[in-house]
Design a protein around this nucleic acid. Sequence first.
RNA 1: GGCGCCGUGGCCAAGUGGUCUAAGGCAGCGGAUUGCAAAUCCGCCAUCGCGGGUUCGAAUCCCGCCGGCGCCUCCA
Length: 524
Amino acid sequence: MTLRVYNTLSKEKEDFQTVKPGQVSIYLCGPTVYKPAHIGHMVGPVIFDAVKRYLTYIGYDVTFVVNITDVDDKLINRAVENKMEVSALAKEMTKDYFDNLDLMGVDTIDHFPYATEHIQEMLDIISKLIDKGFAYPLNGDVYFDVNKDEGYGKLSRRNLDDMLAGSRVEANDSKRHPADFALWKSSKEGEPSWESPWGPGRPGWHIECSAMSIKILGESIDIHGGGLDLMFPHHENELAQSECCTGKPFARYWMHNGLMQAGKSSGKIGGKHSKEGDIEETDDVGMDQASQEANKLAGSKGAASVKELFKIFHPETIRFFLLSTHYRSPIEFNDELIKEKEKNLQGFYRLFESFERITGQDFYSLTPVTLREKAVKLSGGPDNFINELNHARDRFLQSMDDDFNTGGAIGVLFEIRSQINSYIGQGKLDSGTQANDSEIQVLVSSMTLLKELSSLVGVFQKPIETSGSGDDELTGQLMELIIQIRAHARSSKNFEIADQIRDGLNNVNVTLEDRPDGTIWRKD
RNA sequence: GGCGCCGUGGCCAAGUGGUCUAAGGCAGCGGAUUGCAAAUCCGCCAUCGCGGGUUCGAAUCCCGCCGGCGCCUCCA
């Protein structure tokens, strides 16, 4: 099996070959920390977290870097609005970002470099670019000279003439070419500022990624990731300045994830509200309404902070949702779709409970292999069951090998779930009778397989904490009492009372399950 | 105007030349189980936007059309 990865640079799936054998370096463009993270900010980290998990599993030593951009126009503006120091705002928002990553189970990132801690590295690159003739200072700013770079535009496939024709690039007489972008910007009063050979200023937008990527991962890295929206101009410019500086290929594979979308005719979440600059006036009122509708959606759901979102949905549900579709496709964000994932997860959680009832073992304590080469084929149970599971593992890995197809892989997880449930059902293992040793053995190994594969997409790794802790003890005691009373009613065939109790509980979102070995309850 | 993406069952979604009369999920329907439920299991439920073409063979490649979307604006 060979891993294939879609490369934006070639627009093809390519066999995965690393710069250094056995090692993979990943740089993912991180957030500008100026406001609380929304769901869209989680997409990249979750996807590349899964990418790293898989690469690690198939034997690579992976270094994963996500930058924190803590100096930028948006940040400065918001700090002024909130009457805060830029650094204080950045610090607060960085914490918010980290908290959210943590909740989402993104724990594979090795370095979070800060832009403001790499100013010197940026200045070095800028100087080098000027020396090599790829950049020029202009009134305290420094611009990259796009005309000097033959390869400019190769990532996003556009040429400079077309860009001019597009005419959205505003003419700026002093720049040599309208598309020349700032490497260094002179700073105004009150703005964060660093000394430089061209006067006090601050970095341009793209330079920090080049500087930190090169510093931490080297001049040529394996994977550079980010949202599709960053392809141009950010990645194009990053690529240009880096390669002109080092003379080496900057990144082997460019991976771009699709964007989260709020609703049908809307743009992306938290994005623009209107195209004020657009001169097209063909829009009628209907269109306006549609876009308002979409923005409302964005405003109430998607653009809401991740923290708000987590009040409604468990982070694992969101993670599962994000990975259920292919990373390059756009995902529509809406409640119904996420609720469906919630149900999906419930099914797995019930299996875990069932597993514990039968074997007395905790699913979350199972310890699967962490390397593909150490994976062993299952054996010992009914042939067709064991064969199905072994085949399922192969198909899961094949999906992941095909450009990290987490959607296909997760589909296989469902099949494994059904297989195991079916095995349990056929042997009536979860009906109060004692399973024998070999059945338990088979169950443990098949559940361990499920844990092994789900660890690659980073779900089901630790128990989800049950919400509401304060009233738990009392609730538990009350439920025990209610169930006892109902059991009496049932045993004396007083089903009217029994059903009344069950229906009543249903109304307060408590579901009762009468199993052969007793009644259990859960909050929905 | 330029660059690019997408269109698979009621909905979500994998599959991108033969194993596809198309995985999986949600919803629905029928059955097993149950006092009835719940949970679980079994079964049913699509020819792949439209029209041409290439090929022994296409959801998968090419052309055209229709429909949706993104970027070209420091939005991840």
